[in-house]
């Protein structure tokens, strides 16, 4: 795999992730408009989010049950995962090229990301 191929692969990863996220969010937004936003929501006070919108498992469940907010939130989770997936894809590509120096560098980045996500910083 040449550097150009690597660039195309990473570019495609980012593009597919972004499109998937945008489509999910737009579909969820459409659902939300159809179901009618109950009342003008007040974001001036911080109430946090209901539990089903704060964990990845809960977001998946609510999205697949057709909840509009759940679908938008799933789009946001997909968006947040794009940089992480990009690092994982880069690791696979560097390993495929037997570029061990950059495989190691990328593995360290991925490990740090996993640590920070797992420990909540």
């Amino acid at each position: 795999m040449t550097d150009k191929r690597l660039e195309l692969l990473i570019g495609a990863t980012l593009r597919i992730g972004v499109i998937a996220a945008a489509v999910l969010a737009a579909v969820g937004g459409g659902f939300l408009l159809f179901s009618g936003v109950p009342s003008k929501p007040d974001f001036g006070r911080f109430l946090g989010e209901p539990a089903y919108l704060t964990t990845v498992a809960g977001i998946f469940r609510s999205a697949f049950s057709g909840n509009a907010r759940g679908i938008i939130q799933l789009g946001l989770v997909v968006l947040i995962s794009v940089p992480i997936v990009r690092v994982a894809v880069s690791l696979a590509a560097f390993a495929f090229r037997k570029d061990w120096l950059y495989s190691a560098v990328t593995a360290v980045v991925l490990a740090l990301l996993v640590v920070s996500l797992a420990t909540g910083r």
């Binding site: 919108l53 704060t54 989770v77 996500l117 909540g120 910083r121």
Partner: peptide, 17 residues
Amino acid sequence: AAAGAGVYLNRGYVDPV
């Protein structure tokens, strides 16, 4: 940014609307 995202999601900072 993604490194800090889990915390913000869990704390309810990420609102779909």
